[in-house]
């Protein structure tokens, strides 16, 4: 169970990256307006993991393990109550590959298909506006349904839980998001807790996510007439605190831990309804329990499109 972070990471990111109301890229925004109905958000996410860590320190991996995860989620938010309540449905297409050397032979185990379906809701409970600035607070809640397969096997046997497409359990998500924007600068922060429940015999540990994002519009200096194209750069600090997984009620020592990542990103709004964005997440600190594969990087490239 050394690769569970790829899955947990995706689950958390998918819940974070679901909203279409503009910035930032990896952290949620408290905005629940601007949709005028629905929106679509999708992106390609590439997660690479090949650094073996023991209690957070790099060690030599005799099996030379490498994990690559490619995710392509589709997310559809819908404004239920204007400027108050937005519900979001999301389902990812995921491809996972694990390469390792066993008995002198290089083998690959892989899995691909649709993952777990998430249903989330955002409710804005605080709003204070002044000229060219706004402060908003929003609550977030949701359920993740086990729609992804969690019992796939290959020629070697049953794939380990982290290589499965779904968690096999119903999981619950809750948290708060705060956004402050003034002229060219935007500040977003969020606290999200994910309660994972037990599948047949495996339970992922709970995850607490704390993210902070700072955005700065680099072009144009003065935004005059809407709509005009504009570009924003972001720097985000993404942290996760994960509990240990359980297998048949036994705590797994090589699971759980804390990760801190820094993520620079760029977002360009082309028109009133369409934007492209990209970010690169790089681990600053990985304090993982026991022996686990650490993250090398995560690359994210996607679009958001408002429809009505």
């Amino acid at each position: 169970m050394k690769f569970h972070y790829s899955v947990q990471f995706l689950i958390i990111l998918a819940s974070n990256l679901i909203f279409a109301q503009g910035p930032p890229i990896n952290t949620n925004t408290a905005f629940v307006m601007g949709l005028e109905g629905g929106a679509i958000r999708s992106y390609l996410k590439i997660v690479s993991k090949s650094t073996l860590l023991k209690n957070g320190n790099k060690i030599t991996d005799e099996m030379d393990r490498k994990v690559n995860v490619f995710a392509f989620p589709i997310m559809v938010p819908y404004e239920v109550i204007p400027n108050k309540l937005v519900v979001i449905g999301a389902i990812p297409y995921i491809k996972k590959e694990m390469n390792l050397t066993q008995n002198g032979q290089r083998i690959m185990r892989s899995n691909a298909g649709l993952g777990d379906f998430k249903l989330l809701a955002k409710y804005q409970f605080f709003q204070r506006d002044s000229r060219n600035s706004t402060l908003r607070m929003t609550g977030l809640g949701g359920i993740e349904f086990p729609t992804g397969k969690d019992n796939k096997s290959d020629s070697i046997g049953l794939l380990p839980a982290p290589l499965q497409l779904g968690s096999g359990s119903i999981d619950f998500i809750g948290g708060t998001i705060v956004t402050y924007v003034k002229n060219r600068i935007g500040f977003n922060t969020e606290v999200i807790y994910k309660k994972n429940t037990k599948a047949i015999d495996y339970q992922f540990g709970d995850v607490l996510t704390l993210n902070i994002a700072l955005g700065y519009r680099i072009f144009p200096k003065v935004y005059n007439i809407y709509p005009s194209p504009y570009s924003t750069v972001y720097i985000e600090l993404l942290s996760q605190f994960s509990g240990k997984d359980k297998m048949k009620n036994t705590m797994q020592k090589n699971t759980g831990g804390n990760i801190l990542m820094v993520s620079p990103g760029l977002q360009h709004v082309f028109s009133r309804t369409f934007l492209l964005e990209a970010s690169l997440q790089y681990p600053v600190s990985q304090k993982l329990n026991g022996i686990q594969l650490g993250d090398d990087y995560t690359f994210n490239f996607g679009f958001r499109w408002l429809i009505n």
Partner: peptide, 17 residues
């Protein structure tokens, strides 16, 4: 005069309405 106009991407709903 509209306060809170800080996110141009969010102005889409305002324009449509």
């Amino acid at each position: 005069r509209v306060d809170g106009l800080a996110c141009p991407f969010c102005a889409y709903g305002l324009e449509k309405k």
